[in-house]
Design a binder for these strands. Structure first.
Lengths: 128, 128
DNA sequence: CCTACAGGTTCCTGCCACTGGAAGGTCAAG
DNA sequence: CTTGACCTTCCAGTGGCAGGAACCTGTAGG
């Protein structure tokens, strides 16, 4: 399978796939003309990567997940640890964003949003 | 005021303040020895920037907010628009992260997390 | 045969908002 | 005179790609 078909299958841009090869996440073989050739299992790997990335795992997490995936002697505890840590980071991020949203919502709600210069949003930013 | 005191007052690393000067967000004068000298109002500006950044506004948003802040002929509507758009982006991000969290929580909950290789997390990543 | 066009390739740059570090100038205290 | 705490500039790197230039390959049509 060439790169554009692989990209369509895996749901990733071709550019991204080339990048993943660059950083050693996938290692397709090459045709005589230099074109990348992806096996079924490589397409599968890329699909796996696309899903892991879409769940917010970092590239390095993805690398570890792929290793665990291909290692049938793995312990599920290792996967769970990785995922749980990531889950905690997501939770932290949500908490942070919600704090921003709360503050900002208050400010926006108090702003008339008309032609006058008085603005509680700017005031709120200027003094805590 | 020199940079380290300014940094302490504004709640920003000195490095960040230098960067802000670099990109034209603040323009301190210089002493004879080349050291930056920050006026009260520059410290104030930096404090404003620190708050806006902590609410997740981008640097370009901050630039616009500073302009509006210093322009007493502004319309509060412009500020409100900027803030509302940002608020929408924050909401989108939260929604996205919550979707990740939901999916991931389900996967993690179904994983035994022991020494066995069977792992619903990896299975979930491998097929949708 | 030539040409057009849709694929593929590599390589370099840029994004955002800093952060770290090297190499060196400046100043007050001991 | 030296030490140490400041300050300066400049360069490189972060994550995860995206954009674009310059060039090769393969197929279809005239």
């Amino acid at each position: 399978m060439n790169i554009s078909e692989t990209a369509a299958q895996a749901g990733l841009p071709a550019k991204t796939i080339r990048y993943y090869e660059d950083i050693g996440l996938v290692a397709p073989s090459r045709d005589a003309n230099g074109y990348r050739r992806f096996s079924e299992s490589e397409v599968h790997q890329l699909t796996f990567l696309a899903r892991a990335r879409s769940l917010g795992f970092t590239i390095e997490d993805c690398r570890k997940l792929l290793d665990l995936y291909s290692n049938t002697a793995r312990a599920s505890a290792d996967v769970k640890t990785l995922a749980s840590e990531h889950l905690a980071r997501i939770g932290d991020k949500i908490t942070e964003l919600e704090a921003m949203r709360n503050t900002l919502t208050t400010l926006v709600d108090h702003c008339h949003g008309d032609q006058r210069p008085e603005c509680p949003i700017l005031d709120g930013l200027a003094r805590p």
